[in-house]
Design a protein around this nucleic acid. Sequence first.
DNA 1: CTGGATCCACTCTGATACTG
DNA 2: CAGTATCAGAGTGGATCCAG
Lengths: 125, 125
Amino acid sequence: MSKYRSTCLIRGDGGRAIRGILDRIGDKWTLLVVATLDGERMRFTELQQRIPGISQRMLTRTVRHLERDGLLTRTVHPEVPPRVEYELTATGRTLIEPAVKLAEWAVDHNPDIERSQASYDVKHP
Amino acid sequence: MSKYRSTCLIRGDGGRAIRGILDRIGDKWTLLVVATLDGERMRFTELQQRIPGISQRMLTRTVRHLERDGLLTRTVHPEVPPRVEYELTATGRTLIEPAVKLAEWAVDHNPDIERSQASYDVKHP
DNA sequence: CTGGATCCACTCTGATACTG
DNA sequence: CAGTATCAGAGTGGATCCAG
């Protein structure tokens, strides 16, 4: 038997809750944006510089989604040239803890997983 | 400042670790399969029945990926008709805890998020 | 500086039909 | 029973160009 009967939290309602959060953070950049904003207010360009590889388009899309979900605030300063600052909301900050748990799991088990993949691949040509 | 300086776990190496795990579990069915197998050995059809909406094709793909990653074992019994049983490995079981944390976060904050989305949508027609 | 608009390549998923 | 094969639709991400 399992120690985690709480898997009902994942399977409950046919998985709608977990599906919702994965739709939110399961994409390529969302968690990186959230982690980068952890504890700091930051403007668009700085955010882009701190996330290597993200394009303007994807950064725009990602912060828009996060703003819509209420996980960050977007502040436009009425200046020329424009200055826009992003900051996590209280709700957004609470996401960091479970996300870090997941990252810890990834770091801890990546070696095992990569070994398993390698051995699987030689057995299934 | 933030309580979670451990965000370096997410941002470290440019996000490769977190990207890896999201590629693994960020799809539509993987976490549901893992949660359904929690603590039980189960065969293909039973698994499919317990995960409403999953197609044969997607269940096959999902368990194959999980097998390759070493998160579950696939046991083929040499019988007719065939019987194939799936079971989480030790590594697979360790994934459940962080996944449940994420699901808890989703359940806790879904009301807030849905309210935020609704208010965002009326303001951005 | 911020980010909208467009185009394209690729992937993910589902439906359907077939098989040892 | 437990898959494989094929096809089509939707979504995602990247590159590029343009604008307030």
